[in-house]
Nucleic acid binder design. Structure first.
Lengths: 150, 150
DNA sequence: GGTGAAAAGTTTCGGCG
DNA sequence: CGCCGAAACTTTTCACC
């Protein structure tokens, strides 16, 4: 059962402004407040809306260094439980399983180069992997909301 | 002027739940509702809180294919205006300038392999770059909120 | 899906430490 | 100067059509 027109509009609006009120969502969609409310709750229950987050400036909270870390198991036959083995490391913001040369791509946020070095050692030890790190210099844009699909 | 203890706590709480009410933030921080309100508005004005977003399940909105695209200018002396040249492509969720072999890493969301092919052609044409694409197979976790810094 | 009214949340503001 | 508390206003929630 696919998400149809009006639900997709609600999702898109909330992706762009996670704190938009039901009143404003109702105006934008032409529905009543309670109908919008009902749909949002249903979308949350179905998992289409997975949650809400403030977008924050990591420089300002003492985590100015962002990096992508690609990882590859040392033992090619190793069980692929790297995500669980690494999940306790709170510097890791996301973990994607990927096709290609490496197995996973992690996005991490740390305070300093030294903290990155420390994190890399922890990752290698915890998951028995080799790592390839790409340091982010700047972020022209991030978290752009999806375009409304036709 | 760094963000201190109590502000960092507010930011962390909102990063984990972008719709948390001022009342709940007040309870968590031990401040009054109006004091929390004041601090949140100040953090927004300063840009520490950059906005709010719903976290969405892209499978459900018809964009089930995620990929990372690393790009490199064809002409090494080219002006580095790739981000602006690409910003009209709404499939691109984020753009990071990076150190290393390539110049930028893009994260994209598309409907299908065919849509990805089309996007790659548009990227190459718009920014005069070569591309290297890593397809995401699954995402064990994403958008984990930052740990409260000491 | 809509209505309406009670409950809850947000915003503003005068005054206090 | 930032914090508090209360009043004014807005949004959310819920029972019922």
């Amino acid at each position: 059962m696919p998400v149809e027109e009006i639900d997709r509009r609600i999702v898109t609006l909330l992706a762009a402004d996670g704190r938009m009120s039901f009143t404003d969502l109702a105006k934008e969609t032409g529905l009543s407040v309670s109908a919008v409310h009902q749909r949002v709750r249903r979308l949350e229950k179905r998992g289409v809306l997975r949650g809400y987050a403030a977008l924050i400036d990591y420089d300002e909270i003492g985590l100015p260094l962002t990096a992508f870390i690609s990882i590859k198991p040392i033992d090619p036959a190793a069980a692929d439980d790297a995500p669980e083995r690494l999940s306790h490391l709170t510097a890791i913001e996301s973990c994607h399983s990927v096709a290609g040369e490496e197995s996973y791509i992690l996005k991490v946020r740390v305070a300093s180069p030294l903290a990155l070095e420390d994190l890399l050692n922890q990752i290698r030890a915890a998951a028995n992997v080799s790592t390839r790190t790409t340091v982010v210099l700047s972020t022209p844009y991030d978290h752009r909301p999806p375009a409304i699909a036709p």
